[in-house]
Structure formats: C-alpha cells, structure tokens
Amino acid sequence: MNHLDINQIKDIIPHRHPFLLIDYIEDYVPGEYAVGYKCVSYREEFFAGHFPQEPVMPGVLTIEALAQTGAVAILSLPENKGKTAYFGGIDKCRFRGKIVPGDKVRLETKIIKTKGPVGIGEAVASVDGKVVVRAELTFMIG
C-alpha cells in the first residue's frame, strides 16, 4: 500500500486550504486509482450556511473531493508532475445519502480511460460502507 499524508498530497495536487478536501491517501497506484479519506468536522466552513439547523456536506464538494482523489492518481505519474487536472465533465452522478459532521468519508477514484490529456474516472464516496455518491468524472491535464 502506498500511503500519503497531507504534505505529500500537497506535493502532487495544487489545492490548498480551505479547498483541499482530502485528509490522507490510504493507497494509490499512479495512473490507475487512489483511495483517500475526508474526516468531516463540524468546524468545516461550509456548515455555517449549509444548513445551520441540519449540517450536511454539499454534494458538489463531495464530487470535488472525489476529483481531487483522482487527481492524486493521475498527477502522480512522472509525466504529469507539476500539472493540474481540470474538470471536463460529470456524468452518471447520483447522490444516495448525506455526509454529516463526524463522518469519515472513503473516496475512491479509479481511472478507467485515458486518451492524450483527457481521462475518465469512476468515483465512489462512502460512509461506513454505504455508498453516498457515485459518478463518472472527466478530467483534462493542463
């Protein structure tokens, strides 16, 4: 298993606080997949407005966390060092549950297709073994 801490993640992808949405990578294979985690705290800035009476992590931020996890996989390839992975599209996206303070979100993105600077990843977010988000993410390396 290839583990990455937060500083090693920051060496691979350009995201920084408050928009770096993964806390650590449990395992990855460059160009193939990455499995990471987001430990959701009540102190997350978005909970102040989403929603004050019932804090829920915004679905679009879960998609972003999955994209960042995939970016670790694709940008850890030597030929992509120092580059950025941009969103090209989101397909087949389904939200199946809520993410709330105290959740430890498992983020898994598997690269299923690449052609030149464009690729597609299958992404799944889960909490306690239950899938909360599933999507197909298209990225472009710039």
Score class of each variant (00 low, 15 high):
125 A>T: 11
13 I>W: 02
142 G>I: 05
42 Y>Q: 12
122 E>F: 03
130 K>L: 08
13 I>T: 05
39 C>V: 15
110 K>E: 09
8 Q>A: 15
115 K>M: 14
120 I>S: 06
14 P>M: 02
132 V>S: 03
53 Q>K: 15
28 Y>D: 08
139 F>D: 01
59 G>S: 11
76 S>I: 07
125 A>R: 05
10 K>D: 05
126 S>P: 05
59 G>H: 11
141 I>G: 04
78 P>W: 09
96 R>L: 15
106 R>E: 15
56 V>K: 03
52 P>V: 08
132 V>G: 02
107 L>T: 02
112 I>F: 01
4 L>P: 12
141 I>D: 00
8 Q>N: 11
67 A>W: 07
115 K>E: 05
45 E>M: 11
69 T>C: 14
121 G>V: 07
111 I>V: 15
8 Q>C: 05
14 P>V: 03
91 D>L: 08
137 L>G: 03
69 T>Q: 02
41 S>H: 12
129 G>A: 04
130 K>F: 12
22 I>G: 06
128 D>M: 02
133 V>C: 13
109 T>S: 09
4 L>R: 13
135 A>N: 04
7 N>Q: 14
35 V>P: 00
33 Y>E: 01
83 K>Y: 12
100 V>P: 02
114 T>Q: 13
120 I>H: 01
37 Y>L: 04
38 K>H: 10
79 E>C: 03
63 I>G: 09
128 D>C: 03
7 N>P: 02
127 V>L: 11
5 D>H: 10
70 G>K: 01
128 D>I: 00
60 V>Y: 04
78 P>Q: 09
134 R>P: 02
53 Q>H: 14
27 D>M: 09
108 E>F: 11
138 T>G: 07
1 M>E: 13
92 K>E: 14
117 P>M: 09
32 E>W: 00
142 G>H: 10
75 L>V: 03
73 A>L: 04
92 K>H: 11
47 F>T: 08
32 E>V: 11
133 V>D: 10
139 F>Q: 01
92 K>Y: 00
63 I>R: 07
